[in-house]
């Protein structure tokens, strides 16, 4: 039974393509300015307070890897795409319940577990489209300005972001099975993911409070470490994967119990 998976996947395809387009525009903006920017990067880094650099996890702005990590990944990928995954997952169950689509779905010989799993599998569409799209954009963009990004860290920055994005999706999913209205579920999921990111970023500023950041998903995904220092934190990725599975089990348990 893949009817729901196919339906959801085609629904998510358009948004994924639009977001890939947004990243193309970002690349078209950032890559051309890098050669000029790299020359002044040291002065710029000196001019900004170090706290701000820590907040965004920025370093080595004079290298193409550091520049792209800062401009494209630390904000747009981690926060924007994280929020996007939380948002689409939050709408998935709550939206169907609200529009009474779930009545029709569950009147068929399909279990609630299967509905949820197919909806999660459909997230594969934005995961694949966005990851492959943005990898291609970065490979092409960096070659066009003759500053080719090394391929392994580029692939790893995407591969290791998948568990992180799934945790964001998991947060949305829990909201989606708890709330009756898609809007409320999406609003809360969006605020949660943003707040968690903010807590992680802010906690880096003070050593005494840095531990709080370990309760946030973005602490387990360091785009700058991967791109600039080629440090691949597999254990952190495993922590995120475990976190996602816990959220998935929690939402399944809640969905099985609820009235729709």
């Amino acid at each position: 039974m893949t009817a729901i998976l196919r339906n959801e996947a085609s629904r998510l395809l358009r948004g994924s393509l639009v977001l890939t387009g947004v990243f193309t525009l970002l690349a078209a903006m950032y890559y051309p300015i890098f050669p000029g920017f790299a020359a002044d990067a040291e002065e710029l880094e000196a001019a900004f307070p170090p706290e701000l650099m820590d907040f965004f996890g920025i370093e080595a702005l004079d290298t193409i890897e550091g520049f792209i990590a800062a401009e494209m990944y630390s904000f747009f990928w981690v926060l924007l795409i994280g929020i996007y995954f939380a948002y689409i997952s939050a709408g998935t169950i709550a939206g169907d319940v609200e529009r009474r689509k779930m009545d029709l779905t569950l009147s068929n010989p399909v279990s609630r577990e299967s509905v949820l799993v197919q909806k999660v599998l459909a997230l594969g569409v934005p995961l694949i489209v966005l990851n492959i799209g943005v990898i291609v954009i970065n490979v092409v963009g960096s070659r066009l300005i003759d500053e080719p990004l090394s391929l392994t860290p580029l692939l790893m920055v995407h591969l290791l972001s998948i568990p992180y994005l799934l945790v964001c999706a998991g947060i949305g999913l829990v909201m989606s099975v708890v709330m009756d209205r898609a809007r409320s579920a999406q609003g809360i999921a969006l605020i949660l993911v943003f707040t968690l990111w903010l807590i992680d970023s802010a906690s880096r500023l003070d050593a005494d409070y840095e531990w709080i950041g370990y309760l946030t998903p973005s602490r387990y995904y360091d785009e700058t470490a991967i791109l600039v220092r080629e440090e691949f934190a597999y254990f952190d990725a495993a922590v995120l994967t475990a976190g996602f599975l816990v959220l998935l089990l929690l939402s399944t348990a809640l969905f099985l119990r609820r009235d729709i």
């Binding site: 009474r100 689509k101 009545d103 029709l104």
Partner: peptide
């Protein structure tokens, strides 16, 4: 077969 009062089609 089920025909609901409110038809939540896509």
């Amino acid at each position: 077969g089920y025909l609901p009062d409110t038809l939540g089609f896509d």
